[in-house]
């Protein structure tokens, strides 16, 4: 749990977040390296997060990994280093909130975990591609 200890240590020192987001040593590194580093950082936190937030009953570490990597892949086309820097900054902000327990369990469930019922619904949608608006509403129990 190197990552956790490091983050907690930083938080204890109450460093301003701007400094956290852009460690001077990494500024010079190429974009791809910075991204990979941040990706690994996230992955390292996952087992701890699953345990700490009691997410075992809802998801597993591999499932979360694929969800997170999908989030990274969403932005794979971006090449502008400034934009990448900002994305990493935002990502790290999020990560920090998870690690410092500023986020609560339901936040993680809503943002990173796909609820089984929703998965089922989506499967239904796929099975009936020509679902009418009424049926869609009916299955979702919305009026």
């Amino acid at each position: 749990m190197v990552a956790v200890t490091r983050f907690l240590a930083r938080a204890a020192q109450a460093e301003p977040i701007s400094k956290l987001a852009t460690p001077v040593s990494k500024l010079e590194l190429p974009t791809s390296v910075k991204t990979k580093d941040f990706f690994r950082e996230c992955m390292r936190v996952l087992p701890w997060a699953v345990k700490n937030y009691k997410l075992e009953e809802l998801t597993s570490v591999p499932e979360l990994r694929s969800t997170i990597s999908a989030l990274f892949k969403q932005h794979s086309s971006i090449e502008n280093p400034q934009v990448v820097d900002i994305l990493i900054y935002k990502g790290r902000e999020e990560l920090e909130m998870v690690m410092l327990q500023h986020k609560q369990r339901h936040h993680l469930i809503a943002d990173y975990i796909r609820v089984p019922a929703a998965v089922k619904r989506e499967a239904e949608k796929r099975s009936e591609s020509d679902l009418s608006p009424f049926l869609e509403q009916f299955y979702l129990n919305k009026r």
Partner: peptide, 22 residues
């Protein structure tokens, strides 16, 4: 559970005999 008329309208759609009211 759902309201009775909703169930029947939904069933009609599944049976490809849609009713004209939604």
């Amino acid at each position: 559970s759902r309201e009775d008329w909703q169930i029947l309208v939904a069933l009609a759609e599944v049976l490809k005999q849609p009713l004209p009211y939604k």
